[in-house]
Simulated assay, not measured.
Amino acid sequence: MTAFETSLDAPLPNDSGHRFDDGRHWAASLELGFEIREGVTRMTRSRHRGPLRVQRPFHPEERPAEGRPGACHVYLLHPPGGLVSGDALSIGARVGAKAHALLTTPAANRLYKADSHGVAWHQHTRLHVAAEGVLEWLPQETLAFDGSCGEQVTEIALEGDARCLGWEVMALGRPASALPFASGRIEQRFRLTRDGRPLWLERQPLDPAHPRFLGRWGQGGATVQATLWAVGLADEHEAVEALRETLGVSICWAVTTRQGVLLLRYLGQERNEAWDLCRRAWEILRPRLIGLPAHTPRIWLT
Rank of each mutant, 00 (worst) to 15 (best):
A178T: 09
F181G: 08
F181E: 08
F181L: 09
F181D: 07
A182R: 14
S183V: 11
S183L: 05
S183P: 02
G184Y: 09
E187R: 06
R189L: 04
R189Q: 14
L192I: 15
R194E: 05
D195T: 01
G196P: 00
G196Y: 03
G196N: 01
R197D: 04
R197Q: 12
L199T: 01
W200S: 01
W200L: 14
L201V: 14
E202I: 01
R203N: 08
R203T: 13
Q204C: 11
L206W: 10
D207W: 07
D207E: 11
H210Q: 11
H210R: 03
F213Q: 03
L214V: 13
L214A: 15
G215F: 05
G215K: 12
G215I: 04
R216A: 11
R216H: 10
R216F: 01
G220F: 11
G220I: 10
A222Q: 11
A222K: 14
A222I: 05
V224D: 06
V224M: 08
V224N: 09
V224W: 10
Q225S: 13
L228V: 06
L228Q: 11
L228H: 00
L228F: 06
W229P: 04
W229E: 00
V231P: 00
V231Y: 02
V231M: 05
D235N: 12
H237G: 05
A239D: 06
A239H: 09
V240D: 00
A242W: 13
L243H: 08
L243C: 10
T246I: 04
L247D: 08
V249D: 14
S250G: 12
C252K: 07
W253R: 03
A254E: 01
A254W: 00
V255R: 03
T256L: 12
T257F: 09
T257M: 06
R258D: 10
R258L: 15
Q259E: 15
V261T: 02
L264K: 02
R265W: 01
R265K: 14
Y266S: 05
G268C: 02
E270G: 05
R271V: 12
E273K: 07
E273L: 06
A274Q: 04
W275Q: 09
W275Y: 08
W275T: 03
D276L: 15
C278A: 12
C278N: 07
W282R: 14
W282D: 00
E283S: 14
E283V: 03
I284A: 06
L285Q: 06
L285G: 04
L285Y: 12
R286Q: 13
R286E: 01
R286I: 00
R286T: 06
L289M: 10
L289D: 04
I290E: 02
L292A: 13
L292F: 00
P293Q: 13
P293I: 11
H295Q: 10
H295Y: 07
H295F: 03
T296D: 07
P297N: 10
W300S: 08
